[in-house]
Design a protein around this nucleic acid. Structure first.
Length: 178
DNA sequence: CAATCGATGATCT
DNA sequence: GATCATCGATTGG
């Protein structure tokens, strides 16, 4: 149950992302083991929100690492990222999926009573953990931990749902528990 | 199982 | 006015 320190996030997003697999996201009573992440770069990554420079929405990406970058998309979903790399770069890691560990009843209630597929997608993850725009810019200190889960069978592939840089292999996942 | 498609609104051009 | 770092229902194999 070791808290991830800010220095963990000071590295490049493509290094931090795979290192987050198996780590634990804990928000109040809810916790889950991270199973899928994607890395996003700054000015060198056309698929990143940071590609065209700072705007009101993506401002947090250009701030210090280890902060949450939460945005609203498709008119109905939130997505949660952790800012990484040097200040001003705009790098972040998108938290795409976790395996629920505790607080499952709360997650289920937030997810409309579903008992499966509670957090196996970036929008579902935010809904299950109650993450919305109020979380944008908050620190991740006290939210991310190393609980000693062994990471095995990591799969690397292209990022999902984007139309640029579609071949960049910046998505990492481990099998869900099932 | 995979492919398709509508919902729904902020954001940026 | 177009574009989304998505989800869930539906359709078809």
């Amino acid at each position: 149950m070791r808290r991830l320190r800010p220095s963990f996030f000071a590295r490049h997003s493509a290094v931090v992302a795979p290192d987050l697999l198996g780590k634990v996201l804990r928000v109040a009573d809810c916790a889950g083991r991270i199973t899928e992440v994607e890395a996003y770069g700054g000015a060198d990554d056309a698929a990143s929100h940071a590609f065209r420079g700072p705007t009101p929405r993506n401002a947090v990406m250009f701030g210090p690492p280890a902060q949450l970058y939460v945005y609203f998309t498709y008119g109905m979903h939130y997505c949660a990222n952790v800012v990484t790399g040097p200040v001003g770069d705009g790098q972040a890691v998108l938290l795409r999926a976790v395996d629920p560990l505790s607080g499952i009843d709360v997650m289920s209630a937030r997810r409309g009573g579903r008992k499966t597929h509670l957090a196996d997608g970036p929008g579902k993850l935010c809904q299950a953990f109650g993450v919305d725009l109020n979380w944008n810019g908050r620190t991740t200190d006290g939210l991310l931990f190393d609980d000693g889960f062994v990471v095995d069978d990591v799969t690397v592939s292209a990022r999902i749902g984007i139309s640029k840089e579609v071949d960049r292999p910046w998505r990492w996942e481990v099998p869900p528990s099932k």
